[in-house]
Design a protein around this nucleic acid. Structure first.
Lengths: 312, 312
DNA sequence: ATAGTCAGTTAAATATATCTTATCTGAGTG
DNA sequence: CACTCAGATAAGATATATTTAACTGACTAT
C-alpha cells in the first residue's frame, strides 16, 4: 500500500467538506464551484480505492474511511495554516500582537500605552488579554508577557525585574494605620491570583516575615490581581500588591506603601517570543520600551527593604 | 495579509527541502527534478514576499521566515500522512497490526499465535511489542492491548477478564512448600512491572491478605513481568503471576498455583482500537478469538478464591 | 592554473491537474 | 406537479507543475 500522500488539493477539499459536512459549503469556502469540489473528492476516493462520503438524499455522511481521515486532515491543515501565518508575520514590521494576563494588561500595559504609541507611531499595537496560555503560531501572537519562572522550551525569554509584594493603600488610609500592627484594624483585601506560588506570598506570609503578630480581619477576595488593586484604589482597604502591578500607582501617588518592607516572590513577569523573532524590529522596539519603562519606576522599589520569605 | 494557504505542492516542497536542508535531496524524495523543486520554492517565496532560504555556496540555510514555517510545515504534513494511512488501513482487510507490552506479547499472544493463524489464514498478523503507548494513526497500529483501567477518549475499548495475582512455581517446587507459611523458606521472585498499581499487588500485599505472617527472603527482581515468570519456569523460585500471563502455563501444567488464593488487582488487560474500527472484519475476528481463548482457560481461574485487597 | 564537480537557477516546451460553464439526476417540498 | 436543493458529469479552458537542457559560481584536485 502506497504511503505517499494523495494530491493535496484533493485532501484540502476533503477537509473542507468533512468540516462542513456539505460539498456546497466546502466549495464556497475554497472559492471554487461545487463541480470542482465534486471532482476533487472523487479523485481522492479513487486514490484511496474506496468512498469517503456516503451521498444521501440531501446530505452527505462520512464512511469509516472518511471518519478515519477527517480528524487528522483537519489538524494537519490547521498546523500548516498556523505555520504559514507565522512565516507571514516575520514579514510584517508594522504590527505587534501582545498577549498578557488581565492584571498586567490593566495595571502595567494600559496606563503606559499612550507613551509607546508616541515613541513608535509606525507600530500598530494590538492586545489579546487572556489567562489562557496561547500558542504563538496557532493564535497569531508575537509576544507574550507571563508571570512565572521558566524555563520555556524553544522560546526567547527575558525576565523583567525581581518581583515582590508590599501592602498598598490610598494615602488617606495610610495616616490611620501608621504601623504594620495597625493593620489588625484595617480591611485586608485578598488576592487569590498568586495562590499557586511557593513559598506563598499572601498576607499571612507577609506578617510572618515582618514578625508582626496580628489577627487580621480579611475583607473581600479577588481572583484577579488587578481587581484587588482596584479595590484598594477605591479605598476599600489595604491590598498586598505585586511590584509590577502597583508601581505606577505608587509612582503617581494614587497609592502609597507606608511600610517599606517587601516580600520577594518566586515568580517574575517574563517577556516571551518565539526563538528567532527577538530580532524583528517591532519586537526589539517593544522590548526596549518595556525595559525603559521598568527603569523609570525603579526608584520606588529601591526604597524597599526585602524581607526573608523563609522566616518562620 | 491574506490568511489563505499558499499552493500546497510548494509547501510540501519547502517541507522536504527544510527537512533535508538540500534542494537536491528534497527533489529526490519527491521524485521530481531539482529544477521543479527550485521553482516550487521560488513560487512559495513569491507568495510570502520574502526568501525562505539563503542560498550559500554549497548549502542552503533557512531565513527567519523559513525557521518560523519549517516546524509547523513538518508537523502538518506528518499529521496529514498519518490520517491518510489511517484511511488506507480501513480498506485493508488482510493485515492486522497489534501492539502490546512485552509481557503480554510473550506470555499470552506468542503461545497462542499458531492457533489464530490456523483459524484465520487470510489475516496476516503483525506485532509491535513496545511499552511505549502508541498513537494508532501515527504509528500504523490497528489494535492495542494494554494493561490499565481506562477510560480512553475516542477509543473503542473492551476489558478482558478480571485480573489477579497468585503465587506460581514449577510443580516440583510445590511439593517442597505445601503451605503459604512455607514460602518463608522459598526464593520469592519480584516483579516490579506493576508497582504503579493501587492498591499494590506485591508479595507483601498477598501475605497480608492471606493473614500469613512470614518474613520472606526475596530473590531476583525484574522490571518486566514475563522475565519474572520465565525465572519461575526455570525453577529459580516462586513468582507472583498475573492471571493473563500465567494461565496458559498453569493450564498446561508447566506451572502450578498450590495455594488457590488470588489477590485481585485494580487493572485489567484491555483491547483497544480507534472508534469505528471495531467493525473491520479482521479486528472482529481477532477480538472474538481473544474472547474464545480467554474462555478456554477460565476453569483455572474458577478454582481460585479471591482475597480482600484491603485487608490489613 | 584549469578542468571537474556540485548545488542550485533559469528558459522554453510540455504535461498534468484543476476549474468553469452548462447540463443532468433524483429526492424531497409546497 | 413544478420547484428547489445537493450533488454528479461532460467538455473545454486555464492554471500549475514538471521536464529537458543549458547556465552560474564556488569549491576541489590534480
Amino acid at each position: 500500500m502506497s504511503t505517499a500522500l494523495p494530491p493535496l488539493t484533493a485532501l484540502r477539499a476533503f477537509d473542507a467538506a468533512a468540516r462542513h459536512m456539505s460539498f456546497a459549503k466546502a466549495a464556497d469556502e475554497l472559492n471554487v464551484t461545487p463541480a470542482a469540489l465534486s471532482f476533487q473528492i472523487k479523485s481522492l476516493e479513487e486514490h484511496l480505492g474506496a468512498p469517503l462520503f456516503r451521498r444521501l438524499n440531501r446530505a452527505v455522511e462520512l464512511t469509516d474511511a472518511g471518519r478515519a481521515l477527517a480528524p487528522d486532515a483537519q489538524a494537519g491543515f490547521e498546523t500548516l495554516t498556523a505555520g504559514w501565518r507565522a512565516a507571514q508575520r516575520t514579514q510584517d514590521h508594522q504590527s505587534l500582537i501582545v498577549t498578557a494576563g488581565p492584571a498586567f494588561t490593566a495595571k502595567w500595559l494600559a496606563p503606559r500605552l499612550y507613551d509607546f504609541a508616541q515613541a513608535h507611531p509606525e507600530i500598530e499595537l494590538r492586545f489579546s488579554a487572556s489567562l489562557r496560555i496561547m500558542d504563538f503560531n496557532r493564535d497569531n501572537i508575537d509576544v507574550a508577557i507571563r508571570f512565572g519562572t521558566g524555563p520555556d522550551e524553544g522560546l526567547f525569554a527575558m525576565e523583567l525585574v525581581d518581583e515582590f509584594v508590599v501592602p498598598v493603600m490610598v494615602p488617606e488610609m495610610a495616616a490611620r494605620y501608621p504601623t504594620p500592627e495597625d493593620l489588625a484594624q484595617a480591611t485586608l483585601i485578598i488576592d487569590n491570583s498568586i495562590d499557586f506560588l511557593s513559598p506563598p506570598a499572601n498576607w499571612d506570609a507577609w506578617f510572618r516575615a515582618m514578625k508582626v503578630n496580628v489577627t487580621p480581619s480579611y475583607g473581600p477576595a479577588f481572583s484577579q490581581a488587578d481587581h484587588a488593586i482596584d479595590a484598594a484604589l477605591a479605598g476599600v482597604g489595604v491590598a498586598l500588591g505585586r511590584r509590577a502591578l502597583v508601581i505606577k500607582d505608587l509612582s503617581d501617588g494614587r497609592l502609597v506603601a507606608p511600610y517599606p518592607y517587601a516580600l520577594p516572590v518566586s515568580g517574575r513577569f517574563r517577556f516571551l517570543c518565539p526563538e528567532g523573532a527577538e530580532t524583528r524590529p517591532q519586537i526589539v522596539a517593544f522590548r526596549n520600551w518595556i525595559l525603559e519603562e521598568v527603569a523609570k519606576t525603579s526608584h520606588v522599589a529601591d526604597a524597599m527593604t526585602m524581607l526573608d520569605p523563609f522566616a518562620s
